[in-house]
Design a protein around this nucleic acid. Sequence first.
DNA 1: AGGGCGTACTTTACCGCTATAGCCAGCCGT
DNA 2: ACGGCTGGCTATAGCGGTAAAGTACGCCCT
Lengths: 356, 356
Amino acid sequence: MARVTLKTVAERVGVSPMTVSNAFSRPDQLSAALREKILATAAELGYVGPDPAARTLARGSTGTVGILFHGTPRYALSDDFGALFLAVIAEELGRGGLALTLLPNLGTRDVLPVRDVAMDGAIIYSCSPADESVEWLRRRQLPLVLVDQPQDDHFPSVNVDDRAGARAAAMHLVELGHRRIALLAAGPEALANPTDWYVPRERLRGWHDVLDPAGITPALRYVEKSAGEAAYTAARELLAGPDRPTAVLAFSDAIAADVLRAADDLGLRVPRDVSVVGFDDSPVARRLVPALSTVRQDVVEKGTTAAAELVAAVRARRAGDDPPVRHHLLRTELVLRESTAPPAEVNHGTNGTFVG
Amino acid sequence: MARVTLKTVAERVGVSPMTVSNAFSRPDQLSAALREKILATAAELGYVGPDPAARTLARGSTGTVGILFHGTPRYALSDDFGALFLAVIAEELGRGGLALTLLPNLGTRDVLPVRDVAMDGAIIYSCSPADESVEWLRRRQLPLVLVDQPQDDHFPSVNVDDRAGARAAAMHLVELGHRRIALLAAGPEALANPTDWYVPRERLRGWHDVLDPAGITPALRYVEKSAGEAAYTAARELLAGPDRPTAVLAFSDAIAADVLRAADDLGLRVPRDVSVVGFDDSPVARRLVPALSTVRQDVVEKGTTAAAELVAAVRARRAGDDPPVRHHLLRTELVLRESTAPPAEVNHGTNGTFVG
DNA sequence: AGGGCGTACTTTACCGCTATAGCCAGCCGT
DNA sequence: ACGGCTGGCTATAGCGGTAAAGTACGCCCT
């Protein structure tokens, strides 16, 4: 049997298709009685409502926006911080009447979602601006919102003051008296290309802002963000090495958690033998043993702001206006819990100047 | 300036629009030379490729599928098990050339994503079959895959043998000698309506399958799944009560984590004073202190299977076939770690028959 | 030479809906 | 009694593509 469309319903009721369309989409355009009748007939015929695809074409808007992130979905969602961020965005967009599509950033041979999926706009989260997928989205002239990425004059952005946060973390350790400090930074490429991967670079810079003037040359390891064993291994090597650091600055809480685990496995006590500072203040930070000192950023605010900006941009576009371009920089805050303390040497009166 | 479409490009090159369409979508239909020329002109004009919305209408497929889950996105993603499940699905779908749209299950006044978003199919995850949103999807006659829901003759499903898993967990405690056992089940409504919320009911049933014949009447509390404080509070009340249970069966690892926390705060040692068994074997289970004994289910397999079924269903539909209806029941496995032990009374020779 | 066939493109006819302008009746004020 | 307005419905013309059938031409084969 043929598909039931607006026309089918229209013929059955004996009105024009336009009237049926109005019955569903603009109730004020027809009499209540006729509308009732149309809706009843539609239900009877099993007609659910205007076909979304056709409506999209005719109206020029889809009701969906995309989100593109660095790496695979699994990678992005592996840490609860990322998951929460995504959830908050989905929720706020929902409030604005938009659904959220996860864009696989690599397609199969012939399908490239970032180019082929219909959407009204997109959030780009922590990608390299040079990313090929980002390029596609740009070319499509969609409203975009950039999150955790370098600013761009054309698009609204939401960033966190990572650098200041990192400085605060480093400063905290220096003030406690630590001199042998190790950094667990994210991504092999963090410094390779200045435009690449913004957040890792900013945090690294923030640490150096404080350590360099203090005359401290930290041990530095790059690990895959929250890739579990990689971070654990790196941490373990650092802590088992000859000049064991007395403190570790980690790129994320997830990585910090691995440091705690490594320390524990090596029989080291945190913070007595080694201090650890995380980043993000993700939900786990509080639950770790010892509770993690970390740099707090407000994910909920970040997600909400990004989503709200996109909703605004999509609305503006629909109305034919130029979307406003606002740049948000959210503040960070050092949260002190139980994973940091002065180095043991200081307590014992030894001056632990690090000769590395 | 007017929008650049296939036609614009066609006029510029001096060929028919169809040829331009073919240049993008069916390269084998024209000479390589002409195709090059068309692509070059398109690039020059800033034409990115066929408009996805128009293509969707003409071809009848969108390249996107939806996922609907119980509660808000935040709720669903709050526990790392849910996040991982979602990620695995997104990844597997990506391999099949499909993007994944998160469907807010309640819309605003006039937008109802579940009805208005264009998609080729959907995964319904742990919803009540009576859910209004589920009804919309059904009515749209989309290919659907049901996960963690009662079987339905019309759609493929993926379920976990929750009942058997729950039985194994309960049996383990009984064999250790526990008689005073508390259950932390999910959702207030778990048993209210037999068609509601499948998984909580199955697990509860599984526990009872073992406890009832053993003559054990467990204390029972319903808590919001992974709602943090609610579970903590319930656990605390149970453990601080007069006839403190010697063991707790929790609906999920997230809830079990709260039980551990409550026990710790009350000065109780796990497993010496109280044994705890979780469910899911989510990534945290291993990291908890003590490491959690739990019922393992394979999220990756669950997600992959669900996604693969949906890809198959969508492909079948495109080809005009009837999608196959397969039902998967994944097995569970009891994983013993450090959170369970015989009750203290048994160790001390006292027979702790529970009079409650 | 002529039929059959493959290649390279074009023509036609939608896909299912909505914006916009148009039409007509009834009712208003003067 | 007549122009103008409003409410309620219809006609027209796309939105930007694609499938399928059609045309034109060169080539091979017998």
